[in-house]
């Protein structure tokens, strides 16, 4: 709880359990309208800003999570099963046939663009696409 504390990006706790130091606000929480900790707040605005997109695209923790899930997807027998498991894990639903097709071709192209470890990296890109969906940010 002290020192790096909740500024440590490897923290896996839910943010409701974070201790917030007023002098060390958590950058990724601030990106997503975390309430000003010094005053009470009646409603929490939900804004959509470019730094959130940068966060989902390039933050180390986000990429690490995507890679972690990609390793699980890689163990699936084929691409269709990997896409289904990805949708189930991230969005809690199966992909539509159209999505299934679209993502399969995407994974194929991405895989060829990497020199090494293409399968895993392509699957990580797929997971990051899921993270960037409005549907992921707003749970049904």
């Amino acid at each position: 709880m002290f020192g790096a504390g909740t500024l440590d990006e490897r923290m896996l706790r839910r943010s409701i359990y974070f201790m917030i130091k007023r002098s060390k606000l958590i950058p990724s929480m601030q990106l997503f309208d975390s309430p000003e900790p010094l005053v009470s707040q009646g409603s929490r605005p939900a804004t959509i800003i470019a730094p959130q997109a940068l966060h989902f695209m390039n933050n180390g923790q986000v990429r690490a999570s995507a890679m972690e899930l990609a390793r699980q997807l890689k163990a699936q027998p084929d691409t269709a099963a990997a896409v289904t498991l990805g949708y189930q894990t991230v969005l809690g639903r199966a992909p539509t046939p159209k999505e299934q097709k679209s993502i399969a071709s995407f994974i194929d192209v991405q895989e060829k663009s990497y020199a090494n470890n293409g399968r895993e990296l392509a699957l990580a890109d797929f997971v990051q696409v899921l993270f960037g969906l409005n549907e992921f940010i707003y749970v049904q």
Partner: peptide, 13 residues
């Protein structure tokens, strides 16, 4: 590679 990821994301969104 990044551009393709964004294109796919945008088309799904």
């Amino acid at each position: 590679t990044r551009r393709r990821t964004l294109d796919r994301l945008n088309s799904l969104n």
